[in-house]
Structure formats: C-alpha cells, structure tokens
C-alpha cells in the first residue's frame, strides 16, 4: 500500500550537534513499525520533528504527498498525525471522562461550542464511551486522573490519542515506567489498535518491540543504521555491536533481555 506518511532526507542540527541526519522512510496504512536505538540516538527528536514541536533544518515530511513542515503542531494533529508522550501529559485535576471528552471535542471540531445540541451531546458521549471501552477504562470514567494508578495513566495517554481518530500514530515509549509484569495490558491495547492505522512505536523494551513490530528502523547518532524485519534486525551484526558494544560487554543503554 502507498505510504501515508513519508520522511524525506530529514536533517536537524543544533549548531554543530547533529541530532537527525538524512532520515528517510515511510509509513503505510496498517504499518506496525518500531523505531529503536540506544539512548541519544535521536528517537524522540524524530517524534518532535514529525509532530511539529521541532522544525527540521532540511528535508521534508509529507502526508499523502502534502508537505507538513510549514504546518503548526495543532494543524498536523488535525491532518491526522498524532503522538503520545513518553512522560504522561494528562489533565490531572480533571476526571478521566473529561480528559477523553476534551480530545473528542477537538476531533469533532466542537471545542468552541458554547452550546451543544442533544444529538451532538449524545454523539460526543458515545465517542467517549467507545474510547474508554477500547482502553478498558470504563470503570474509571468519574475518577480524577491524579488518583489513577500509573499504568492506567499510560492507557489514558493512548486513549487521548485514539480519541482524535488519527491516521498516523506515534507512540513514544508507551510502556515507559510500567513494571514488566504489568505491561501486558499495554501490549494488548497496542495489539488491538485499528488495523488501518499507521503506527510508529518508539520503545526501549525489546520484548514489546519484537512482539509488536513487523518492521524495525534502527537509529544511531541521528541516522538510520538499518531497516528490516525483526528477524533481519536481530541477526544484524551492526545492531548487536550498537547494543552490546565492540568488546562484547553489555552497554549501559541496552535493555535487550
């Protein structure tokens, strides 16, 4: 299938420091691609470039062939490119329901409404229920976010993104900080994402990466080291060297189990 999101020779440098260098790859509808690399490889920088938090020094990002680089962050979200955050960015003093409702109102372009018709209200509530149901959070709808368990907050982070009905979803370490034993729910949720969605997963947890990804992009020092299937990447000596170091010692950043 034709790529929906395309990165074309993307470069970013802060003065002399190169954080992204000639990054080129695409995401098609239904893609399950993981982006891996040691700490400082530029994974989050790439997410920031795609979402619009950073502007590339050169190169292009296109959605259906339309360039996104001149669009603001909100405009990119409205076009269908949505991200989650590595550290929870939730409305902590609001209820779980209101958190999702805020996102649904954005998706339905109703956030400026001073008055809601009955039909609109029902449609919004149905969408909120749908998203909460998909994330197994129905029972938490009336709870304040700050009273939720950490793992549930991670699920809500994904819920906000899904409420926007994205075409491209950037998941920035969805299981970050969640204990190994409890990351199963998050894996299940990621496994049941809408099939037509193009997903880019940024993750340290190799279990999650190899269970989820049908394609892996390996990033090192801002540049693409290799792109391949999980089997190809696992067998690649350069990747092993990247993670295990030249002399065979496990490096600090490695989390391969």
């Amino acid at each position: 299938m034709a790529d929906v999101l395309q990165l074309e020779g993307l470069c970013k440098n802060f003065g002399g420091l190169v954080v992204a260098s000639d990054v080129t790859f695409g995401l098609a509808p239904g893609d399950r691609t993981a982006l891996i690399g040691p700490n400082g490889a530029g994974k989050t920088t790439l997410v920031n470039l795609i979402s619009g938090a950073l502007h590339p020094s050169s190169g292009d990002i296109t959605l259906d062939g339309r360039s996104l680089v001149r669009l603001s962050m909100p405009a990119r979200v409205q076009a269908g490119v949505v991200r989650t955050f590595q550290l929870n960015r939730l409305f902590r003093d609001q209820t779980v329901g209101d958190n999702v409702r805020i996102a649904v109102l954005q998706q339905k372009r109703q956030s400026l409404r001073l008055w809601q018709s009955r039909a609109d209200r029902i449609a919004v509530e149905a969408a909120v229920d749908h998203v909460l149901g998909a994330l197994h959070l129905e029972a938490r709808e009336g709870r304040l976010v700050r009273t939720l368990a950490y793992g549930e907050q991670r699920l809500l982070e994904i819920a906000l993104a899904l409420a926007l009905e994205p075409r491209v979803l950037l998941l920035d370490e969805p299981a970050a900080g969640v204990p190994r034993g409890e990351s199963g729910v998050i894996m299940d949720v990621i496994a049941s994402l809408p099939p037509s969605l193009a997903v880019l997963l940024i993750e340290h947890d190799m279990d999650l990466v190899f269970r989820f990804a049908r394609r892996i992009v390996v990033l090192a020092s801002g540049a693409i080291l290799t792109i391949g299937t999980p089997d190809e990447v696992a067998a690649d000596d350069r990747v092993k060297q990247l993670y295990f170091g030249r002399d065979g010692h496990v490096s600090q950043s490695s989390q391969i189990s």
């Binding site: 909100p74 979200v77 409305f91 609001q94 805020i102 109102l105 954005q106 409404r113 008055w115 809601q116």
Partner: peptide, 24 residues
C-alpha cells in the same frame, strides 16, 4: 459548555492541548 471544558484543558496544560490539535 465544550468551550469551557476546553478552556480548563488549556489552563492545565496548553502544550498538551496543542498536541491534541487545539488552536490555543
């Protein structure tokens, strides 16, 4: 209203609202 709820969202975290597509 939806407008008020969105206002409180911006109050909590304007950058997050932008990442939800809101013209804050």
């Amino acid at each position: 209203s939806p407008f008020g709820l969105t206002s409180r969202g911006i109050h909590s975290d304007p950058e997050r609202m932008r990442a939800l597509g809101c013209n804050t």
